[in-house]
Nucleic acid binder design. Structure first.
Ligand SMILES: [Zn+2]
Ligand SMILES: [Zn+2]
Ligand SMILES: [Zn+2]
Ligand SMILES: [Zn+2]
Lengths: 170, 170
DNA sequence: CGAGAATTTGAAACATTATAACATTCTCTT
DNA sequence: AAGAGAATGTTATAATGTTTCAAATTCTCG
């Protein structure tokens, strides 16, 4: 369940998917929730993609499966998966991505590369803490927090003349 | 331009609006940008509302003005206003709100009350800093940051038995 | 097992949000 | 006044998300 790893390169994605599905099954069992066929398939499709998938992308893939699904089918599956902490919705993209910290208490922060489209979910307690402090300062009770950072990932070449600040990987 | 004030109560909202419009004029002049009639009216409508407005809300209000506008008119105005830092889009609401820090360099954080619908924009450097650090740790170059916190504002009664953590105002 | 309750899925229609493409009008400069 | 660029109008369409009710499935309990 490799939390905070850098999944940008060199990983066996099939294993990723298998792990995620196995985790999901365990989590649902623990919660007495039913990971039905559609739900599992949607989760699998989401994990198969490195990039966040839109609901209608998923719908199209289900259609390719031969499953003649309508939008509510997908949205219901996504709601279920979100509710059980198996996927996240990226509000700035209207898209969904598998949670890389499923089963653990975390407040995700999403790093979205606008060059390659990859998204990395980090668990960043310092960020959550800062948000909690700032909220408390004005008497606000946080309930759900969205942190989405769009930018350039370390795998992508800096556009023309700009400096790349990350550690060099080669 | 009351930055980080608590606009929840007791303020002269007409003055708010007038100030915001005056600021907007100045900012546009400085940037050689044209705050045309539609753009100004859209900005005014947004400021008149305490709560974020959807593009189609604005469209309806323009219609009430007698202005027979189509969606692109509104979206173009909103694009302009965003580009010049006069409004923000709240991704989790698909809605727009006036920037309370226009003209200053800031990274907004939005506190969205799901009870009353009010939104407070904070400039929270500690949050931005934490996000920058977490990003840099993994070699990611942030470009645009979305921080949206949904919860309960200090004006709204805590639902049933829950404790209200904010400073009591009465 | 088998009836009834609850959950899940199917299906059709609809609602909301956002954009594409091209014509026209306006504004500023020369 | 002419021309260039910016802004707006207009029509159509795409993309995203919801409501509603019916049918099927699964669970519970006697
Ligand atoms: Zn997560
Ligand atoms: Zn990238
Ligand atoms: Zn702002
Ligand atoms: Zn409130």
């Amino acid at each position: 369940m490799s939390a905070n790893a850098l999944p940008y390169r060199h990983h066996n994605h099939d294993a990723c998917i298998a792990d995620a599905l196995a985790d999901a099954k365990a989590i649902c069992q623990r919660q007495n929730a039913r990971l039905t066929a559609v739900r599992e398939r949607v989760l699998e499709l989401i994990w198969q993609s490195h990039r966040p998938l839109g609901a209608y992308d998923i719908l199209g893939m289900l259609a390719a499966d031969g499953h003649n699904a309508a939008p509510p089918t997908v949205y219901r599956a996504l709601d279920f998966l979100q509710q059980h902490g198996l996927v996240h919705r990226i509000a700035s993209l209207n898209a969904f991505i598998g949670c890389t910290h499923a089963g653990t208490r975390h407040q995700g922060m999403f790093l979205i590369c606008h060059s390659c489209g990859n998204v990395l979910e980090l668990s960043a307690p310092e960020v959550s803490d800062a948000i909690d402090v700032a909220s408390a300062d004005v008497g606000f009770q946080p309930d759900h927090v969205t942190v989405e950072v769009s930018g350039l990932c370390p795998e992508c070449p800096a556009p023309n003349g700009a400096l790349q600040n990350g550690p060099s990987h080669e």
